[in-house]
Nucleic acid binder design. Structure first.
Lengths: 169, 169
DNA sequence: TTAAACTTTCAAACATTATTGAAAGATAAA
DNA sequence: TTTATCTTTCAATAATGTTTGAAAGTTTAA
């Protein structure tokens, strides 16, 4: 396989993956492009490489910076902004985990807390019983997951994959 | 808070969550409804409860069954099909992890394998070097994640949350 | 200042995905 | 069989999400 073909494949696949991870296709493609690029790239270069418009490039680069997986860079004597990606896959994973926790897990936990004290006087005894049981279970699970994610985000790769992984039997 | 309000909140939040987990909104809402329902429900009841069409209900119920988190049930003497959800949150999590692995991780690993042997003769020495480095790192990470997910899917809750969680410091 | 180089915004156009509902397909009882 | 009941399909439509591109905004150098 030639470089160009491989590059194309990676960018496409990463785009698809991104879509199921809360980023959108273009966002993930820009990220893939920056990941495999040895030098940081300007908005102009990204637009050209991926055939996307200026606005699209700008918005998605900002979103990536927001997620904390792409950084702005200023080259000395240059007016333009350049962008580079976090290249450490472990850091990347932690960053994504953190962001998803904020966007997904936190709201669910908040909702479960709100919902836990429903009044049980509307005569729907069985429904309410089941509702309480399920929300309690979900809350327990969500809290545990939250705790684990917290540790994961603080963990370092060596310990995680070295020590922890081996403890799975 | 009243039961109806809590129910509404849970269904909405679950729908939103589902959207970022590879199920679609309606699919996740049906699932939420079945989860809190002490009795299994018919397609008719689901349609009415969530204000969705027959076709929509049918397709999404099938998809949930496909994911392995909703089951068909036949009541004796009844012609209609009834549906009930997996209610064990741990089982649910494992089932979802398994599906997502199949749909997301597997394709990426496949792509990374395809891409790992690019020819390095097109004169783009630096690009190719970086490409190989990144894809190698990604592959390593993907393989490790795959292994962990495998174990997770086979693990039981007590061991996982009891033993393992404590090993995080 | 002014002008050039760059970045950001956002309404309109486009693309994708989800939903509807009516018709066709099953299935079981009469 | 036939009929009634229930399920599935799918083309049309609606809803949602993404992209464009031109105009407005910002920054820097002269």
């Amino acid at each position: 396989m030639e470089y160009e073909e491989g590059k194309e494949k990676l960018i496409q696949a990463w785009g698809t993956l991104g879509a199921s991870w809360g980023l959108n296709r273009t966002m993930a493609q820009i990220h893939a492009l920056l990941m495999i690029s040895p030098e940081s790239l300007s908005a102009e270069e990204i637009m050209k490489e991926l055939n996307i418009s200026r606005g699209n490039a700008n918005m998605n680069i900002r979103a990536l910076i927001d997620w904390g997986i792409v950084y702005k860079e200023h080259k000395p004597g240059e007016r333009k902004e350049y962008f580079k990606s976090e290249k450490d896959v472990w850091e990347l994973a932690k960053q994504v985990a953190q962001e998803r926790r904020k966007r997904e897990l936190d709201p669910i936990i908040k909702m479960l807390n709100q919902v836990e004290n429903i009044r049980d006087d509307s005569g729907q005894v069985e429904n309410i019983k089941e509702f309480k049981k399920i929300t309690k279970d979900l809350k327990k699970f969500a809290d545990k997951s939250n705790g684990m994610l917290d540790k994961f985000i603080r963990a370092d790769e060596h310990w995680f994959f070295g020590t922890l992984l081996k403890s799975f039997k």
